[in-house]
Amino acid sequence: MKIFFYKSLVVMFLFLLTFHFSFNYAYKKIGNIINDTFSKDKIESIKNKLRSEAKSAINKEVYINSKDAEIINKFLDKIKSDLKRNN
């Protein structure tokens, strides 16, 4: 009885230890990755990045080069014509 009792305690402890260093460890690691990727702070930092990019775009004399501007223009025209056709 005594030996069984002590063995049970050891088994329980080893179970918790294994659980901690397997599932619990993975849970924390994934949790931290998710938190870091989708956190409010991360979104805030992306917003700040966008703001600073927009500011620098305003200050530049030419932000989109002529080739890109041509492609974007054609692309927008294409969308417009498709929308008109479907109306």
């Binding site: 956190s39 702070d41 805030e44 700040n48």
Partner: peptide, 9 residues
């Protein structure tokens, strides 16, 4: 309470 490396609060 926020990550000041990412958040400019």
């Amino acid at each position: 309470e926020v990550n000041i490396k990412l958040n400019n609060k």
